[in-house]
Simulated assay, not measured.
Amino acid sequence: MLERIRSGLLYTETDAAFRDPLRRAELVFAYNAISPAEPERRRQVLERIFGSLGERAVLLSPFHAAFGSNVHIGDDFFGNVNLTFIDDVDIRIGDGVMIAPQVTLATTGHPVHPALREDFRRFSEPIVIEDRVWIGSNVVVLPGVRIGYGSVIGAGSVVSRDIPPMSVAVGVPCRVVRAITDDDLRPRMSEV
């Protein structure tokens, strides 16, 4: 069954029940209740939730996860409030990634035809977010997407296709609008 799930084939809630021990719902709940004044304790709980967690990772409360154990986060990560991981399969986040508020990373979807949605039938495909990516507020990343190195995803986007490295992409559906170039090294506002 695990191979079926990892292959992106349809599976049901009943099929997936054997994976319930991998869910970290109680730990996620506990993390969201820990004061920000206790960073060491917060880190210890995150290490128990996620499959792997890099150095200097910051995740603001609250956050949500279907499992938690399928999330792998690199070094120097920043996740803002209300980050949701629908991690029925792996979500791999590289180093130096910044994620704004209200973002959903969803590895799982459901068939369009209602006859195929019996017993919550679904499919899952991994998400990969490469190093140095910035994802804006209210973005949804759908199953099977890879966001390339250094890219920026504009606020409110729905990412349903891979985004190449060093790109600015926005919209519903999310599309590349331009490359990131050396011109982007200039300060945003002129100094006074």
Rank of each mutant, 00 (worst) to 15 (best):
Asn82Ile: 06
Glu55Ile: 08
Arg41Trp: 01
Asp90Thr: 12
Ile93Arg: 00
Pro36Cys: 10
Pro101Arg: 05
Ala57Leu: 06
Thr107Phe: 05
Pro39Asn: 06
Ile99Tyr: 00
Asn80Tyr: 02
Gly68Tyr: 09
Gly94Asn: 01
Arg43Leu: 10
Phe67Asp: 15
Met98Lys: 10
Ile93Val: 15
Ile73Gly: 04
Gly94Trp: 02
Arg42Gly: 03
Phe77His: 04
Asn70Tyr: 14
Asp90His: 11
Ala37Gly: 08
Ala115Cys: 02
Pro39Gly: 08
Leu53Gln: 04
Ile73Asp: 02
Asp87Lys: 07
Ile86Phe: 05
Leu60His: 14
Gln102Lys: 04
Arg56Leu: 06
Ala106Glu: 05
Met98Ser: 10
Ala66Asp: 15
Leu83Thr: 12
Val89Asp: 09
Ser52Thr: 06
Val112Thr: 15
Gly96Arg: 00
Glu38Pro: 05
Glu38His: 15
Asp87Gln: 07
Thr84Pro: 08
Ala65His: 04
Phe67Arg: 13
Ile91His: 02
Pro36Asp: 15
His113Arg: 14
Asn80Lys: 02
Leu46Ala: 13
Ile73Tyr: 01
Val89Tyr: 01
Leu59Trp: 12
Val71Tyr: 06
Thr107Ile: 06
Gly79Ser: 09
Leu116Tyr: 11
Phe77Tyr: 13
Leu116Ser: 09
Ala115Tyr: 02
Ala37Lys: 15
Phe78Cys: 07
Thr108Glu: 12
Glu40Val: 15
Asp88Cys: 08
Arg48Pro: 03
Pro101Val: 10
Ala57Gly: 08
Val58Pro: 00
Val103Ala: 02
Glu118Met: 11
Phe67Asn: 10
Ile49Val: 14
Leu60Ser: 12
Arg48Leu: 14
Ile86Leu: 14
Ala100Ile: 02
Ala115Val: 12
Thr107His: 06
Val97Glu: 00
His72Gly: 08
Phe50Cys: 03
Gln44Ile: 01
Leu116Val: 00
His72Ile: 05
Asp90Arg: 15
Thr108Leu: 07
Asp95Met: 01
Phe78Leu: 12
Gly79Pro: 03
Asp95Ile: 00
Ser61Gly: 09
Ala100His: 03
Gly74Asp: 08
Arg48Gly: 05
Arg56Val: 06
Asp88Phe: 04
Gly54Arg: 04
Leu83Asn: 05
Val71Thr: 12
Val45Asp: 04
Asn80Pro: 09
Leu116His: 12
Pro114Gly: 03
Val81Ser: 06
Gln44Arg: 15
Leu59Cys: 15
Val103Tyr: 03
Phe85Lys: 14
